[in-house]
Design a protein around this nucleic acid. Structure first.
Lengths: 142, 142
DNA sequence: GTTGGTGTTTCCAGCCACTGGAAGGTCAAG
DNA sequence: CTTGACCTTCCAGTGGCTGGAAACACCAAC
């Protein structure tokens, strides 16, 4: 099966499938013409990756999951640990976004939204206290 | 005021401040020694950017907000539109993450997490139905 | 004056996970 | 034989920084 078909069956763009080969996740055979040749097994793995990515796992985490998937002697505890860590990450993201949301919502609610320049949103951005007198290392939310 | 001091007062790393100059957001004067020289006004703008970024606005949106901030004849409606769009984006992110969370949570809850290989998380990744028979364009959640 | 340490400059490379596009080879249909 | 869809490789770009190298500037101590 060539890459277009594998793309159709896995739900991943061909570009992404090639990329996954580049980084050593899925390596198909090659036909006489140089075309990649995917087996059902490969497609199965591609689907596995598609779903793991859709659940928010990073590429490196997907690599681990794939290793566990192919390890018949795996401990389900190892899989659960990965998933639990991801769950905690997601919870943290939701929490952080919730904070942003609350702030933004308050600002939007208080803005008249007319043709006059007065605007509590701009004022908040401009006038808030000095964030802290420290010299470096700051991470902001996305 | 040199860049280290501006960094301290704005809460942005020096690297980031230089980057903002690179992309034309904040352009300080230069001293005789070639050092960047920031005024209180510059620092004010840097803080503005720091807060806008922390609220989730992209660099390009920050550029717009900065333009509006400096535009005495702005319409607050324009600011509100930006903020409302951002709010909607955040809501969508929260919703999508909530879905992921629910799925992951169910999987984690059903996994024994012991030394045996049987694992509903892996099974779910491996066995779910074909995502769809379409050839291209797929975006997954982060 | 010299030493040393810290701060600053520029520039280049890398992160993540792709995505776009160019230039060319292959294949099946008409 | 041509057309067009598909495939190949390779290089560059995305966003928003971050790390690091090499060189220059500054300041205090000796």
């Amino acid at each position: 099966m060539n890459i277009g078909h594998a793309s159709g069956r896995s739900g991943l763009p061909a570009k992404t499938i090639r990329y996954y080969e580049d980084i050593g996740l899925v390596s198909p055979d090659r036909g006489l013409n140089g075309y990649r040749d995917y087996s059902d097994r490969h497609v199965h793995i591609l689907r596995f990756l598609q779903r793991a990515r859709a659940l928010g796992f990073s590429i490196e985490e997907c690599r681990e999951l794939l290793g566990l998937y192919q390890d018949k002697g795996r401990a389900s505890a190892d899989v659960k640990a990965l998933a639990s860590a991801k769950l905690a990450e997601i919870d943290e993201k939701i929490r952080a976004l919730g904070e942003l949301r609350a702030t933004l919502e308050t600002l939007v609610r208080h803005c008249h939204g007319d043709e006059r320049p007065a605007c509590p949103i701009i004022e908040n951005l401009a006038e808030q206290g000095i964030p802290q007198e420290r010299p470096a290392r700051r991470r902001s939310a996305a």
